[in-house]
Design a protein around this nucleic acid. Sequence first.
DNA 1: AGAATAAATGCACTTCTGTTGCATTAAAAA
DNA 2: TTTTTAATGCAACAGAAGTGCATTTATTCT
Lengths: 138, 138
Amino acid sequence: MTEIEKTLEAHQVRPTAMRILIYKYMAEKEVAVALTDIESAFSKSDRSTLYRTLKTFEENGIAHQIDDGTGISKYALCESGCNCELDQDLHLHFHCSNCDETVCLTAHKIPHINLPYGYLAENANLVVKGICEKCSSE
Amino acid sequence: MTEIEKTLEAHQVRPTAMRILIYKYMAEKEVAVALTDIESAFSKSDRSTLYRTLKTFEENGIAHQIDDGTGISKYALCESGCNCELDQDLHLHFHCSNCDETVCLTAHKIPHINLPYGYLAENANLVVKGICEKCSSE
DNA sequence: AGAATAAATGCACTTCTGTTGCATTAAAAA
DNA sequence: TTTTTAATGCAACAGAAGTGCATTTATTCT
């Protein structure tokens, strides 16, 4: 049994061939992936299967959905210690306006925000936009 | 000439009847509005007109678009001193998971974030989700 | 004022993303 | 092996965003 299969089973997700492939794809890409990215990479499979795979990953804490402000949902694998299941993983995301790629900056947590009286914070999403390391060095 | 007309003209936007109405509508609502909200409020007008009005407001620094993570674009009027035209107005937004309303917390600016080497920040978007003042007091 | 010009509006339609119902296939349990 | 459950593929729908074009309204110029 491979590492990936173990990871999936540890999250109560049955390691089907498709799921293993998608997991591998996401692990190799170092940026967040959109459904359409996976679609073009796995043209033999159906969009709904890929969609449901992402949802399954999300529900089981294998990946988290990222809203980077482009209007397109992207997904990235959770790293160990990611608390996104509890809606409490407050790392920030960086979206490059040049290459349109989005990365997790897991080391950078969202700072605590003092809200006005009466407001209760449950979760937060911080997306910094600009030029990523790859694009700025060209 | 009314205040609203003056405001529109100050931003190089011709104060048509429709635009004045939409501006008034947004000013009265204290929360960010979606295109569909305006649609139901002005059923006599066409969606594309309303859509283009919002875009015009946005392009001319009268309103700014808000991505609150619901997947639906919302808009709010800029306050005086809003720098959203320069993509540099870093106030945060609060989205209530109970009433689904989104408000600008203009007094709360996004704290400065130290990015890894090579990353250049141009803009940032911070949305805090939770329970708003109105809903928490019920 | 009237003609010419430019902008705003309304209509119809398209595209894209996300989403779901249902039949079929594959896998796990009994 | 049979029964049961889960995953997949197909087809379709929903909602938001966006666009081309004709028409109307407003502005400018003579």
